[in-house]
Design a protein around this nucleic acid. Structure first.
Lengths: 395, 395
DNA sequence: TTGTATGCGTTATCAC
DNA sequence: GTGATAACGCATACAA
């Protein structure tokens, strides 16, 4: 005997096909489709290959799923004994909460995204370690993506982050990135964004960087004070603020010591080893060869060192070389590479903390520009004579 | 005039509180709670701070959300013109699909998890690059976690992966891990697991490793053929198969050349630099000091090199040193470190491919043991005299 | 080709 | 303290 769920009628009920395996009915008198609720149907389906849910636990114990939910989250309104039994049953049934459903229901993910240009260098993995630290400490998870220095990939990554509903995002720009529309979207959505290392003024979001200007200034000053006179600079793409800052420091130091800024001694290009080799050749094949090169980063500097070695140019006597970022290799290569040590792990941690503050409260006051300090590490590659390291610096 | 949705009654209707901001009613005659459907309520709420959904688009166009869904996924049964309009509207409204809801509805995440012990070394980042490659190519995402060599963290990571409903998981065991219950859970759940590099026989899941036995054998043979006679081995924790395999190769080579296996020349311990220093000191302070050491990996070997340098022991004349994994530093350090080159990126790619096969079809036949080949890279640190590299090996 | 209804697993809200 | 039910945003089987 089938009764219409809406009007209670029993006369004019028609079978109306199957829906999700359940018989569906149609009540002619009130023009209404319905199915007869079958409390076991859910169970039956769940048996097949599905993970345990709170509904399973509830059914097993003959209680409501909301009670189970409360027990699992130590809600104040729950009987201690009930809770104990539920927890026990949950463990016995190998229950694992479904984060997807949880997040969907809560409309929040506790997810922080981080996009880095590459993994090849030790730099970004270290930043990730720091960010991971801060983020997990705050009860968030970290979703890691790499743009592979490509604008298109960065856009795709940003989109994926959006789709995954991250609560906030950390980003270091890809070398290629010149357009920031994909990032403006985050602002529109109210999702905080913090840039680190590879930043731009094109966006008014908090930045975390090192004192690139000062550090570069110090590097060049150090070279000058060690007797180098024709100092070249091998820099990065000029759309990256970091490249421009280091260039600015380089020029400022030259000016301070009354040395000319020779345009043929300055190259800006991309960061791939292949290109570095081309640029290096160009610099060292010049008629009036530079007697020192300040490179944007250590991998570049190391490549230069190898080129010099091949050409039979003695480092540091005929050519001083300085890098940036204190790669592990720089300590071991012969001669040891003078470089700038950056607080990489710290950078990740600091950037993540600022982001988390913003996630917690979008109105909170955070520093627009955080500048971390660096340290000049003097090794043999920049000591023309056989002088001791200049000043009171670490070696 | 409120009418009961179930029995049509209008007399015995009581207000029964608010639910989610909507008035709720109670029909005394049929004992039934209900709310009056309000098509605009959803819209109103959504206005406040919510991202666009397919429902918004549907409402905007006065069509069904299912139609929007079909348009967005290029379902065959959709009018081209309708689709065009929907896509246009979606773009105009800055629609971003909600992956959480998508995944929940589909009961699948297209997520692959990878857990590695650490990020400090170049090894695991490279594996990740390879895995990332294979995984994204197959339309999956990669969720990266690190156990930090800790068993507890590994268990927590595994749990988080489960909660995030990964479709499959790649894992390299933490140094501490001895118990595999947390991994057995994956099997129970039907979630494929593939181990790489740090594997165990404790689980019958596919392994991807390099030919550790052979490689170690070759290393020791190389040392013997270069005139070293008291060869020590600084290995890793014995619960890791990789440690045992390399030990086996070491012993086999000694046996082949009729050399005694001196137990005091063999140390197994943990991989932290601090411990390595202690072990190194111990080995080199012995009365009958070994004249060569084969270390489990390059960081260990480099540490040994530094210790030797401090003690004034000449490498390779008084002490031959060989590492494993061809760290970037090994090429540049003085003397260059003889080592085994492993296909790291390849390892990640291969492991991911096997996993993806399994994810696609749990019954598919996959190799239980994949062994990738390595290459002995001979540099100065193992050449006692000033011989040329032995055999036809890369330098 | 489009609309309707249901389910995915969870939380939140109210009644009891 | 516990139960019932409506969201959360999407996919999909069927009906129309």
């Amino acid at each position: 005997m089938i009764q219409c769920l809406k009007c209670g009628e029993v006369a004019h009920i028609l079978k109306a096909g199957l829906i999700r395996g359940k018989q569906r009915y149609f009540c002619k008198s009130c023009n209404w489709h319905f199915t007869i609720p079958d409390p076991d149907a859910v169970d039956r389906r769940r048996k097949i290959n599905r993970q345990t849910t709170i509904v399973d636990i509830a059914r097993e114990l003959g209680i409501a799923s909301s009670t189970v939910s409360r027990a699992l989250h130590a809600h104040p309104d729950i009987n201690a004994e009930t809770r104990r039994i539920i927890l026990e049953t949950a463990a016995r049934m190998d229950y694992q909460p479904n984060k997807l459903a949880y997040n969907l229901a809560k409309s929040q993910t506790n997810l922080i995204g981080i996009i880095v240009p590459e993994f090849n260098n030790q730099f970004f993995p270290n930043v990730i370690i720091g960010a991971h630290d801060a983020v997990t400490q705050a009860g968030y998870s970290l979703m890691i993506m790499q743009s592979n220095e490509s604008y298109a990939t960065e856009v795709a990554n940003a989109r994926a982050m959006l789709e995954n509903r991250v609560d906030g995002i950390l980003l270091s720009l890809a070398q290629e990135t010149n357009n920031y529309d994909h990032l403006v979207l985050f602002e529109k959505r109210g999702i905080p964004l913090v840039l680190f290392n590879r930043v731009t003024e094109g966006l008014t979001v908090p930045h975390v960087v090192v004192n690139d200007f000062e550090a570069s200034f110090l590097v060049v000053e150090h070279l000058i004070q060690n007797g180098y006179e024709r100092i070249a600079h091998l820099g990065g793409p000029l759309n990256l603020l970091v490249s421009r800052e280091r260039l600015r420091g380089y020029k400022a130091a030259l000016r301070k010591y009354g040395m000319p800024v020779e345009e043929s001694y300055i190259i800006h290009g991309d960061l791939t080893p292949h290109k570095v080799r081309i640029y290096g050749q160009y610099l060292l094949d010049q008629e009036k060869r530079p007697d020192a090169i300040f490179a944007l980063n250590d991998p570049m500097a190391i490549e230069l060192l190898l080129i010099a070695r091949e050409k039979g140019i003695r480092v540091p006597q005929e050519l001083g070389i300085v890098g940036f970022s204190d790669d592990k290799v720089s300590r071991f290569i012969e001669p040891g590479l003078t470089t700038i040590r950056q607080p990489t792990v710290e950078m990740g941690r600091v950037a993540a903390r600022i982001l988390l503050d913003l996630v917690g409260n979008p109105e909170v006051e955070v520093p627009a520009h955080t500048v971390l300090s660096t340290e000049l590490v003097v090794r043999a590659s920049s000591l023309k004579g056989n002088q001791e390291p200049w000043g009171s610096l670490t070696s």
